[in-house]
Design a protein around this nucleic acid. Structure first.
Lengths: 237, 237
DNA sequence: ACAATAGTGTCTATTAGACAATATGTA
DNA sequence: TACATATTGTCTAATAGACACTATTGT
């Protein structure tokens, strides 16, 4: 017994309508700990509640474009390479304002400059908080945003060893130790520096390439590390 | 400069509305080849075009429930374990009927019984076709369904070695050779039987467990293989 | 000199892969 | 018996992990 839906009149106007939002889980690694950017909402229905940045998709843009636009508008962060869709949410009642389906995106960015991200607009505040506070329930969020963040972190843990996503957390140049610290923050345990380096450099298509510069050892001293940058798509051939 | 969207009146009625559909990529392995189930549409706007089964999400059901319901309604297949959401699509103009966002699901099922899947209802036909025909463009589909199928196959290739998804393609009992043939169909190359078996059985949390039965060697003979079944969640502890 | 961090060498254990050998069925 | 398929054994290569050691800086 095979039927296609809808029967007869197939015009979409005959079917329930939803608002579609894109929400962005903006992750960074600060002091060895994963952080997520939250905003305090100033709108009437959710005043004072903390939530993920995001907003409504427009009919004339793609989902990816909507995510990039919202990210730029709300956090002043230009869309980085790793802005990836990871799951959609549509449970009934998840948004008290009505039928809302949310497409969630994940962005890995370098530590945020608080001066550029805080204050202004309709959000009373914006703040990066440790994801652990959210995951452990110490920080309550609006909607199902705590679950979305949990799913995003699971996704990063799943991808960290198989994709260059760790580089999203770093600036244009970085040391191998920088990359390792990102991995350590994600997996939650220390990694052997020697073995990590070997594995990273032994892949067939290198994702990083050395520059001719060294970084500046801090006041603590130590041998200066070579600075790397992302390998161009060309050099990865 | 931080603003939250929307400004002021935050009621969702002020924002564009979309129809939300769930489409299901129903994959099976027939004669060593990946197949996908397509239906021929009988509705006014797309009469005669082949497309993925799917339909509109209702406000009072989750996305997963909508996918299970549509799968059951349109293909008579009860939702198997591996009905997983893998991507959402919202490009402007992707559906000529208007603003439609589609959440795509992937289902791995045993080879379909044609008597149960064909004919009836508003679909003039239903048919399992080799995914290769779709991927290589030999079979034209409605909407962006060819791209969705390509993404689904990429997802399976990515997951086949890391999840029990292969078991979705098999019935309640199966031999290790059955599992290997599924893997071979997905990765597109033959796998060493001895090494495949060892790897499969040496995982710490076994995903299969032997029964006390053997399967019946075909008319070609050969040593009968032990039949396995899925390991219960309990025995995986 | 001493502490701190980067980077190399080396040894062992584990895993992956090729492929031979054995077990058990049908025709 | 000849053939087909399942299952086990064995050897080698590649990889992963622990950890000692060398290199280069700041104080």
């Amino acid at each position: 017994m095979l039927r296609i839906t809808p029967r007869g009149n197939n015009d979409t106007r005959a079917f329930p309508r939803f608002a579609v939002t894109v929400d962005i889980v903006l992750l960074s690694v600060v002091a060895g700990t994963l952080h997520v950017l939250l905003i305090e909402r100033a709108d009437r229905t959710h005043r004072g509640m903390w939530a993920l940045p995001g907003g409504f998709k427009k009919p004339d843009e793609t989902l990816d474009e909507a995510a990039s636009r919202e990210l730029l508008e709300e956090t002043n962060v230009a869309a980085p390479g790793h802005l990836t869709q990871f799951h959609s949410y549509g449970d009934p009642g998840r948004d008290p304002r009505g039928n809302v389906v949310t497409v969630a995106y994940l962005a890995a960015v370098p530590p945020l400059d608080n001066r550029r991200v805080a204050g202004g607009g309709d959000a009373s505040r914006a703040d990066g908080v440790p994801v652990d506070d959210v995951v452990r329930g110490r920080r309550k969020l609006a909607f199902d945003h705590a679950r979305i963040i949990r799913d995003a972190v699971d996704h990063v843990v799943d991808q960290i060893d198989r994709t260059p996503i760790a580089l999203g957390f770093l600036g244009p140049t970085f040391t191998i130790t920088d990359i390792r610290r990102v991995h350590e923050a994600v997996v939650g345990e220390p990694l052997d520096a020697a073995n990590f380096r070997r594995r990273l450099l032994s892949v067939d298509r290198p994702i990083i390439q050395p520059t001719d510069r060294l970084n500046n050892p801090g006041t603590d001293g130590g041998r200066p590390a070579t600075l790397y940058r992302r390998a161009s798509a060309r050099s990865r051939r």
